[in-house]
Design a protein around this nucleic acid. Structure first.
Lengths: 192, 192
DNA sequence: GCAGGAATAGACAGATCTGTCTATCGCACT
DNA sequence: AGTGCGATAGACAGATCTGTCTATTCCTGC
């Protein structure tokens, strides 16, 4: 019963391939047969590890959530001690992401879009990630001495998600810089 | 050959039903058979008016683009002569939209998400809308005396798209107000 | 050597998908 | 009355979808 979180080579292989194809083409656009063929894994192996395609997607989103937030934390930590620099480092991180060759939008926004119903497990899992990121931003904002860290985090979340959508539409990194410049200006106001 | 833009009752009926179902459930999630059944229209009627499902979607996005921008213009016009008030009225318009019972995210962001490939006709059509809105914002910003209307419009676009994503995740209207407050602050800076 | 669990290939069910085709019907216009 | 066009129902093709099942094989621990 390798249901909860047990790692196995085949399972990892499956998730890596599924991630690549889902992120490239979309959840509904990719059938499990294609994933299985490209991963070199039998169908029953998938259904021994996951109850359904939906559960596979949820597991992928949760994994991506962990990795993405860990990557953000690492970037922030590497930015030094200045709270302002730490916050702005998030936007440098964004800019690098937008410039990476396989950038294809935000998988969580895309999951919200493909499963628009509020009660759907995939929709909720995707939104959980955005809430978690917002909480990270609030902590960074509090450390920077913002008068209203929660409000600042909300605004920064808007800028970030807007920038991701714009980068997906233009395939350019400029939106990250725009968001960064705006954030710098807002920080001055918020900590004044 | 009613291909280009000829209006017909059946065609309108088809587009209305297709819009409703696509917006509710997603493009790939809704099959044309369902649309036809709910619209009470024969399959050949669809394929006489549109070459494919994809073309139907593109036509719907173009129609929605026209209507949405017209609605924005009307809101702005109704806001009076003050350039600042006119710009801020966009966010009141957003808030009303988020609060409407069938709000289900932005169909253009969702189209970008479901058809993530940059060269896809649906993807490009959806992005065209975002570009057009940004141009509207730049004009409003210029009228408000912004030093850099294009840059301001870019930032406001980020806030707007971010707010839409947030409203889709939370089913609340608060993100529109956050974006509005931030915009008011930015306007003071941009016109100072 | 052997037992047991994991993975395998592949058939299968049952549904659904887009798009094509045919044959008929209804209706407006002359 | 007759012509022509738009719309109709419904069969059809061919592909694809998720999920189930079986029977076999592989590998590891004992």
């Amino acid at each position: 019963m390798p249901e909860p979180e047990i790692s196995s080579p085949k399972r990892d292989q499956l998730m890596a391939t599924a991630w690549r194809l889902f992120y490239r083409d979309g959840f509904r656009a990719v059938g499990i047969d294609l994933i299985l063929a490209e991963a070199g894994v039998a169908k029953m192996t998938l259904y021994n590890h996951f109850a359904s395609k939906e559960e596979l997607i949820v597991a992928l989103l949760e994994k991506r959530d962990r990795e993405l937030r860990a990557s953000m934390v690492a970037t922030v930590e590497a930015a030094g001690k200045s709270p302002t620099k730490r916050l702005l480092a998030v936007f440098d991180w964004l800019e690098r992401w937008f410039g990476s060759p396989d950038f294809n939008g935000c998988v969580f926004i895309r999951a919200l879009s493909e499963y628009p119903e509020a009660t759907h497990a995939i929709h909720r899992t995707a939104w959980n990630h955005k809430v978690a990121v917002k909480e990270m931003l609030a902590q960074l904002g509090a450390a920077a001495g913002a008068a209203n860290p929660t409000g600042l985090a909300e605004t920064l979340s808007l800028l970030i998600d807007g920038a991701i959508v714009a980068a997906h539409g233009t395939r350019e990194t400029g939106s990250a810089r725009s968001a960064r410049v705006t954030t710098a200006a807002l920080l001055k106001l918020a900590t004044a």
